[in-house]
Design a protein around this nucleic acid. Sequence first.
RNA 1: UGGCCCAUGGUGUAAUUGGCAACACAGCUGGUUUUGGUCCAGUCGUUCUAGGUUCGAGUCCUAGUGGGCCAACCA
Length: 561
Amino acid sequence: MEESKKALNFIEHIIEEDLADGYAKSQLRFRFPPEPNGYLHLGHASSICLNFGLGEKYGAPVNLRFDDTNPAKEEKAYVDAIKRDVEWMGFHWDKECYASDYFQELYDWAVMLIKQGKAYVDSQSSEDMAKQKGTPTEPGVPGPYRDRSVEENLDLFLRMKNGEFEEGKHVLRAKIDLASPNMLMRDPILYRVLHKAHHRTNTDWCIYPMYDWTHGQSDYLEQVSHSLCTLEFLPHRELYDWCLDQLVSKDRLRPKQREFARRNLSHTVVSKRKLLQLVEGGHVTGWDDPRMPTISGLRRRGYTPESIRNFADTVGIAKRENLVDVSLLEFHVREHLNKITPRVMAVLNPLKVVITNYPEGQVEWLDAENSPEDESMGTRKVPFSRELYIEKEDFREEANRKFFRLKLGGEVRLKNGYIIKAESCTKDTDGSIIEVRCTYDPKSRSGSGTEESLRKVKGTLHWVSVAQAVEAEVRLYDRLFSDENPDGHKERDFMEFVNPNSLLVITAYLEPSLKEAKVGARYQFQRLGYFNVDTDTTGDNLVFNRTVTLRDTWAKIQQKG
RNA sequence: UGGCCCAUGGUGUAAUUGGCAACACAGCUGGUUUUGGUCCAGUCGUUCUAGGUUCGAGUCCUAGUGGGCCAACCA
């Protein structure tokens, strides 16, 4: 890639400085450290692109490390989903690691700390400990167990490990500084008792290390050079460094933590906890519901990994609060899908057109090009006949000159077909139009080369032949939240902004070439948008998702009146 | 009311580290087009405030303002 010319983000500046300062390029190593307690979302995609992107840029390995220190929330199923998502994004990790692989080392280091008088077993309730901890403006005070003897601490900690105590009875705490302005340094908890089976270590352990006692050490054991995390971990850095101070040896690389701002996307939430709420509340069908900003949701929706990676690259990385507009994401899917999808015709909201001068029973199979962007995609045949469907929105009895579509007495080109003229229409008792009767110009067939075929008419419509049309279920999605920043309101819960109309299911009529469309296949339904075949598709039920609409200039013109 | 972080067009990021503020998206105008798509051309608009250092400040210093984070046996 010609990546080298691009401006560097602040993380890359840090790495460049380190390189200039004597780091060998071969020492560079990164990691992506998800907790397997939920599915990956667009925020993680940014982090994935950052870490793996750095790996690609510097030719450095990147580990996939599961931060699995809390068996109460974590599951193997999430591990599998995360691996699938990272692979789908097109990245390759060097080692597949688990924090749980380091439980023994972590335990040994904790024992070492106790022996040095730097950690102690506290046996109070969490409420009491919280009280003694003070507040950001007042220092904490020592609890009654802070000065237990090394022997007693060692004994208690061993018995915690052996499962002799119930949850909540004892914790192991580091003895650091109760007066620190950084709350995290006020004797942070290192271990808690948890009688839960772990997805990898099963019931081997009755005590589990906390994040702060795990992350830096994991980085150190894996010799990660730059440990990148989001800004809310900035206050943890002091503790991260304290932990490393206790055990780093001078001849090994010492990892450094640096922090960047998480990405926020407009009209959605990027928080596993909140996404879980949507899943559990039944507002969506699951983590991979196409409306979800999860990687699996976007995949099912028809997004491509390339479009997500380009999005992440364009958005970049920095340290300030942000709210990225979804339109940027949509721009990137359209940009990619425009290049790779074949064009087809489908009618979502049918209105019957009868071509009165077209022979009854006749069917012509017309040539249609699969992509105006890419001739190598070839052509296909589409059937033309006396009875067709067009979109209801494409016909009006009367309209002004700005309406480039079909109106009574007006002409329009049927894409890949003939020029037709609307002669009359019939209505039902409510007055809504149910059929348009047209005539066609037999010499105007697209591609026939005749003078008539070359005639310019202002509008071109997509259509399908009624007799050969394939019915399909089409799912039209709208934003999941009506508010631009649903979790940005202090007094209102984000759930208040859930859009009740985020899904519209319709029956559409497709050209017959789509009959055998495979799950996952992506198309452009001409003039409508990009669609893909959903995983719910079965032998007798074709299901399409609308990935994104085409840019719609006409909608804007109409809005202006 | 303590500590830490942040502040550049509507949005997101750049600025050769103190030297003409730029790129993308969005918006707007026009052109091409058998998709009101794509493509092409053009256009709008930016350094939070006040001081200071300097020949020169988006960048450095001070103060202010605004926003965020920090008192889980979560990560």
